[in-house]
């Protein structure tokens, strides 16, 4: 099987999401990449070095600069004339473009796959991850988005694929890019942060929450979250809440401080890669899901931790 992988890049280098997707594609067959953009040859050169890549298609055209789905979908559809599967990372770009490609190919897309079980069989989360479905496609070609955290990164070095220029139809004349506003808050956003420090009811009041949690978060460059109990008690505003009716987060590292781990909270953070819990009560449910637990009084342990980092 020949696969075509959508490359996310910043014109110079390849984003990690791509590397995870390459790993998924390699399980299906030969990996070709598509680097589309404007002035993105350097990115194509970086992509050519990814281990296991056979070919890089480079579409360098002003119309592809912002990856507008209306413009890039026809380009991909053309390339799919000689590929069997299209894979994109399940990023906002991948989710925007892939279904448009799928519909043009008359293919039912497989979204957000977690594993490759066979040539046409995959697992994917449904019901916000409360269930995992194993699905088999009956379409001749495959269109897939890939959940990054479910696949290891392919090595960024070691390959030497050929780069082939491709021309596309360019601007479809349906849409245009107006501008972008990248989040520039001092603290990362909860839903996209790599590290989250989250506080619970045990923090007593809003001043203590501020004094204990914030310095640790600052040290780690982390976003700050809270349990519903802490939000209910008024320590922090509603938009800090992780879990039931609050946000669902999946950072690399989630540090739960003084959170007992009510199931609603667990549902909001259980997809975190590593969970660290600091709690006085050794029977707290949070320890049943924590990868690393510290049974200690948070009022001494957290400042000590902040000091030692």
């Amino acid at each position: 099987m020949k696969t075509l992988v959508w490359v996310e890049h910043d014109n110079a280098s390849v984003k990690d999401a791509t590397l995870h997707t390459v790993t998924a594609a390699a399980k299906l067959g030969e990996v070709h990449l598509l680097v589309a953009g404007s002035g993105c040859r350097a990115a194509a050169e970086a992509a050519a070095k990814i281990a296991g890549v056979a070919k890089v298609h480079l579409a360098d055209n002003a119309a592809y600069e912002h990856a507008l789905a209306e413009n890039v979908a026809p380009l991909i559809v053309d390339l799919m004339g000689h590929h069997d599967a299209f894979l994109a990372p399940a990023t906002t770009t991948g989710k925007n473009v892939a279904p448009r490609v799928a519909a043009l190919l008359d293919v039912m897309q497989l979204s957000d796959i977690l594993s490759v079980e066979g040539e046409k069989t995959f697992t994917r989360p449904i019901y916000a991850g409360n269930a995992i479905a194993t699905v088999e496609s009956s379409d001749a070609k495959l269109v897939i988005t890939v959940r990054g955290t479910a696949f290891e990164k392919a090595a960024a070095e070691g390959g030497s694929a050929a780069i082939e220029d491709v021309a596309g139809a360019g601007d479809a004349g349906l849409s245009s890019f107006v501008g972008a506003e990248l989040a520039k808050s001092e603290r990362p956003e909860l839903t996209s942060a790599k590290v989250i420090v989250s506080g619970g009811r045990a923090l007593k009041d809003s001043e203590t929450f501020e004094q204990v949690i914030m310095p640790l978060a600052d040290k780690l460059g982390a976003a700050v979250g809270a349990s519903r109990a802490a939000v209910d008690a008024g320590y922090v505003p509603n938009d800090y809440q992780v879990g039931q009716t609050g946000k669902i987060v999946a950072p690399e590292v989630y540090i739960a401080v003084g959170i007992s781990g009510a199931i609603q909270h667990l549902a909001g953070m259980k997809d975190s890669k590593t969970i660290i819990a600091i709690n006085k009560d050794e029977d707290a449910p949070i320890f049943q899901v924590a990868d690393v637990g510290l049974v200690a009084d948070l009022f001494t342990a957290v400042p000590e931790l902040t000091g030692k980092l």
């Binding site: 039912m108 699905v135 009956s138 259980k270 660290i276 320890f287 899901v289 924590a290 931790l305």
Partner: peptide, 30 residues
Amino acid sequence: PRLKTLKVSEPPVRVAGVKVADVDALVTKL
């Protein structure tokens, strides 16, 4: 339908990891 659902299962359950003895050990882990 184009997709056939072969099976629906519960997501894997997280299992408890290790407990560290003190803050220094936690720093090492981090």
